[in-house]
């Protein structure tokens, strides 16, 4: 299922921050994890991943660090900062409220419309 870009806009940073709370990850890994953990609903386009990471880094919410793997390949790992953690907690609270509200709205919608227009 393809989600509209506008709907994704606010969700993707939250998803990245949420994943990084678990552990530090590098770019490709983040793409794969987001897709896997959301059953492909949130498909983080690779061309949008890096701008997103650089934005979060610029805000001081995450920080990147180059590390070498066992096979001598270099990867840039991103981890959550304290500021990022606080932001994540705040955003998650808001997100939960939003999900609740939207859930109610979606389930109440037909009834509300009936009341508003009895002829319908």
């Amino acid at each position: 299922m393809k989600i509209e870009r506008e709907l994704l806009k606010g969700v993707l940073p939250l998803a990245v921050l949420r994943l990084l709370r678990q552990r530090a990850m590098y770019g490709y890994e983040l793409v794969e994890e987001v897709s896997k953990r959301t059953d492909g609903v949130l498909n983080l386009g690779q061309s949008t991943l890096y701008p997103l990471l650089y934005n979060l880094e610029a805000q001081g919410l995450i920080e990147g660090e180059w590390n070498q793997t066992d096979s001598a390949r270099k990867r840039k790992y991103y981890k959550l900062t304290d500021k990022g953690l606080k932001r994540l907690e705040r955003d998650l609270t808001q997100w939960e409220a939003l999900v609740r509200g939207m859930g109610q709205l979606v389930s109440d919608a037909p009834q509300a419309r009936l009341v508003a227009n009895p002829a319908w």
Partner: peptide
């Protein structure tokens, strides 16, 4: 899967400049 390279370049520029 990478997507539009020109759009990526523009967004990367914006993100990097912010930092």
């Amino acid at each position: 899967e990478f997507g539009d390279p020109d759009l990526a370049a523009r967004l990367i520029r914006r993100g990097k400049k912010r930092g």
